[in-house]
Simulated scan of single mutants.
Amino acid sequence: MASSKKIIALFKKDLLLEIRQQYTFYGIVLYIACTVYVLFLAINEPDGSTWNALFWVNMLFISINAVAKSFLQESRGRMLYYYTLTSAQEFILAKLLYNILLMLVMSLLSLITFSFFLGGPFLHAGEFIGITILGGISMSLVFTLMAAIASRANQNAAIMVIMGFPVIIPQLLLLIRISKSAFGEIFKEGAVFQMVFLLGGLDVLVLALCMILFPFLWKD
């Protein structure tokens, strides 16, 4: 059984390290600002479909840069130390919680920056914010699992991208499709809820894989 106290302690450790170092945070903020500003200079105010596609592609690269660091920064000696203090389930749950929080912050920051420079062509702002939050959580779950696997393969970040590609592309296409409802596209009755339910099912599957596979990686 996972101990909530140990999970919270590990979560606080990652959060305090990020607050003290802030390399990831400011690096991603710079990436968002530069990317959106270049898009603003190139296309100024894109139409809804273009804006939506650019936003989610930007979110993809944000999630890769933000989440990959969570495991790749951990040295072998530090992982051995964690092994003596906590269980695999507690460790991976703490990482998932931290990466979800980080992606929520980055997702909302990206949405604000996009809206400021490129306008907000969506018709239902509240709906799109909800979809953005859901998308940030989904991407953080996928890349946390991929980063955990890559960390056990001699810190090879390329493995994370290669293994994550067939998983994240369907998820990304689903998010683009769902978010079109916020831009006024009409769907069949109940279609949007079905897609959200499918996305939630994918998230549960990834979470289950984390809980099942990570203990084997933990023992390596």
Rank of each mutant, 00 (worst) to 15 (best):
I7R: 06
I8D: 11
A9I: 08
A9H: 09
L10C: 03
L10Q: 03
L10T: 01
K13V: 09
K13A: 12
D14G: 01
L15F: 13
I19W: 13
Q21K: 14
Q21N: 15
Q22R: 15
Q22T: 11
Y23K: 13
T24A: 11
G27T: 02
A33L: 12
V36N: 00
V38Q: 00
V38A: 01
E45D: 15
E45S: 15
D47H: 13
G48N: 11
T50D: 09
N52G: 08
F55L: 03
W56V: 00
V57C: 04
V57H: 02
M59H: 05
M59W: 01
I62Y: 00
I62N: 00
S63C: 04
S63Y: 00
S63H: 02
S63K: 01
A66R: 02
K69T: 05
K69H: 08
S70H: 07
S75A: 10
S75I: 08
R76W: 11
R76M: 11
M79Q: 14
Y81F: 15
S87N: 07
E90G: 08
L93M: 13
L93H: 09
L93A: 13
K95C: 05
Y98N: 07
Y98Q: 08
N99Y: 00
N99V: 00
N99T: 01
V105N: 06
V105L: 10
L108P: 04
L111S: 01
F117G: 05
F117M: 07
G119N: 04
G119A: 06
P121R: 09
G126K: 03
E127G: 15
E127C: 12
L134F: 07
G135F: 01
G136Y: 00
I137K: 05
S140M: 07
A148G: 13
I149M: 05
I149P: 02
A153C: 11
Q155W: 09
A157C: 10
A157Q: 14
I159G: 06
I159W: 08
I168H: 00
I169P: 02
L172T: 02
I176W: 06
S179F: 06
S181P: 07
A182F: 03
A182R: 02
F183S: 04
G184Y: 10
I186G: 10
F187H: 09
G190M: 07
G190F: 07
A191I: 10
L198Q: 13
D203L: 07
C210T: 09
L213N: 06
L217V: 10
W218T: 05
K219N: 14
